[in-house]
Simulated assay, not measured.
Amino acid sequence: MRDLGRGFGYLMKGQRWVAQHGKQYGVGLLPGLITLLLYAAALVALALWGTDFVGWATPFADDWSSPWTGLFRGFLTALLFALALLLSVITFTAVTLLVGQPFYESLSEKVDISVAGFAPESGLPLWRELWISARDSLRIVLRAAVWGILLFALGFIPVVGQTVVPVVGFCVTGFFLVEELTAVALQRRGVEARERLALLRGRRQLAWGFGTPLAVAFLVPFVAVFLMPGAVAGATLMARELIGEDGPDDDPRGPAAGSADASGPGGQASATGGRP
């Protein structure tokens, strides 16, 4: 149970870090705003033409007697929109991270520098990092979509669907959010997707403590935009513990970048150092 509180603590530390670094916070808002506009446009289009789409997809109901045609298609339209909302919550982080890869990469590096005086590098060209990020994000989105459809279907079970399933849904969504967010820092350290998943499965409560409250907050799109920079910062701090770079109680402010322990050749802190 201690890991639940520790995970939530990393979420708060990340928000505190961006609050103390206003420039990084401002830049980190841009990808979320772009993604929010794209998702809002898609949902508005679905709201306007969802009924027409359902009518086109269910020609067999044209000859049904009234009111069954309207009730059936109305139910399917509501179901389609609810599923779209669920998938929006689940995929928002993955798409935002993909859109904002350079921005969040820079933010994550700044967090590492503030803690240890240097930031590990993957050594890969930008196009390669973007390809890996897109590939891993697609895998996460597909797994999340499967879980989303399954949980949505289970939601129709009386009592269980209205009590247990929502809780499980938030935990699953939170875990996927953490997997996506920690990928920013872990990918720079050469940790592959399969290894990242194994690390998080070994610390599920830590992931839930960080990701579950974030998943609840992300139900409000504008909140998701404003929390994303801090979520990336907090996930970077948590990633350091996952791979053993920091202890659970280390101060996220870390040593000063110019301290003797964090300095590179010539007494200057290295902002792009290799692995610790």
Rank of each mutant, 00 (worst) to 15 (best):
G5P: 03
R6A: 09
G9F: 04
M12S: 10
Q20L: 14
Q24W: 14
Y25R: 13
G26P: 03
L30G: 00
L30I: 15
Y39H: 07
V44F: 10
L46R: 05
L48S: 09
T51K: 11
G55V: 07
W56P: 02
T58I: 02
F60I: 09
A61M: 10
S66Y: 11
W68R: 02
G70L: 10
L71M: 13
L71S: 00
F72C: 02
A78L: 14
A78F: 11
L80Y: 06
A82M: 12
L86T: 10
L87G: 03
S88Q: 13
I90W: 09
T91R: 08
T96Q: 08
L97K: 05
P102S: 11
S106A: 14
S108F: 07
E109R: 15
K110W: 07
V111R: 08
S114M: 06
G117P: 09
F118H: 15
P120D: 08
G123K: 12
L124P: 02
L124T: 07
R128Y: 05
L130F: 07
L130T: 10
A134S: 14
S137H: 09
S137F: 02
V141G: 00
L142E: 08
R143C: 02
G148A: 12
I149F: 13
L151N: 06
A153V: 15
I157E: 03
T163K: 05
V165M: 03
V165N: 05
V167M: 03
G174V: 00
V178T: 09
E179H: 04
A185F: 01
V191C: 01
L199M: 06
L199K: 08
L199W: 05
L200A: 04
Q205L: 15
A207D: 07
W208M: 06
G211N: 07
V216N: 05
F222E: 11
V225E: 04
F226Y: 14
M228W: 04
P229D: 04
P229N: 02
G230R: 05
G230N: 05
V232D: 04
G234L: 04
A235H: 07
T236H: 05
T236S: 05
L237Q: 14
G244K: 13
G244T: 08
D246P: 02
P248H: 12
D249E: 15
D249P: 01
D250V: 12
P255F: 11
A256C: 10
A257R: 15
A257H: 11
G258S: 13
G258Q: 11
S259F: 05
D261I: 15
D261H: 13
A262L: 08
G264K: 12
G266V: 11
G267W: 07
S270P: 06
A271G: 15
T272P: 00
R275F: 07
